[in-house]
Design a protein around this nucleic acid. Structure first.
Lengths: 135, 135
DNA sequence: GTAACATCTGTGCAGTTGATCAGATGGAGG
DNA sequence: CCTCCATCTGATCAACTGCACAGATGTTAC
């Protein structure tokens, strides 16, 4: 059994050192990883996801319409949008008393599309057995 | 102000009914939305994300190597993998005493890639101002 | 069989999160 | 100026989530 220097500089045992090195070499740093998981976490809430899919379909909606489209209160919508706006996922445009929101990034649009495709085209759900080799 | 029949059949007020209808028409159903956000939630944890990026780089790793590569304990890794496996994100292959895991879906690989790209190519972080119109 | 190793599984606790309520802000119209 | 309306904000509370510990399972070698 070999050993590999971990991310924290501490030496940890490893069964397959080369593989571990290969994994750590191009791995995202702590900062990058934090940002990545932050984005996923934002999309990981059903309420926020519903808002984003609504925006994906309609293009641009104000808070009250988003509340209507997702069957929630304007307060809940506003709070969700605050987080999404803080991460640059959505952008707002003020027009009179209304603020219209829209998806502000093509990447996010792609994430929403790909994942929906992933869900609808995969039987999944049933856990994959350990013994099964889905090569 | 018009009114629109919400997802729950309850009639809710709306400022722009057509837009709301457009948003609700192709919106994911409750079940589909649940699955989608469940996937995002899985990727939204830094520990799990780190494991997935390690697998993305190395292709296939056993539990102890994953623990080494991500500087965590084997227990934590095993627990995280349980969830990932239950949703079909990763798949395991037993070889003697070791169980080798890998990403089981091309969609997930794409999600990881796209998001990392999104992060590295975007200044982001600074929230978009409400008054700004980035059209 | 027994020992050693890799992995998996419950349980308990700390930290985090999302919905709700009440109230503040800010533009539009009289 | 004052009111109405859309939106935003801060505080509180219940629910959830991930990690650590201890122990169970299963596999290989003797």
């Amino acid at each position: 059994m070999g050993s590999v220097e971990g991310l924290d500089g501490c030496v940890v045992p490893a069964v397959h050192p080369e593989k571990v090195l290969q994994a750590t070499a191009n791995a995202p740093g702590a900062d990058e990883l934090g940002r990545v998981s932050a984005v996923f976490k934002l999309l990981g809430d059903p309420t926020r996801a519903r808002l984003l899919y609504a925006l994906l379909e309609a293009g641009e909606l104000c808070v009250c319409d988003l509340a209507a489209a997702t069957s929630t209160t304007d307060t809940t919508v506003s709070q969700a949008l605050r987080l999404l706006r803080a991460s640059g996922v959505v952008a707002g445009r003020r027009e009179g008393r209304n603020v219209f929101y829209r998806l502000s990034d093509a990447h996010v649009r792609m994430l929403l599309d790909v994942t929906r495709e992933h869900i609808t085209h995969d039987p999944k759900s049933g856990a994959a057995s350990v013994t099964e080799a889905t090569s």
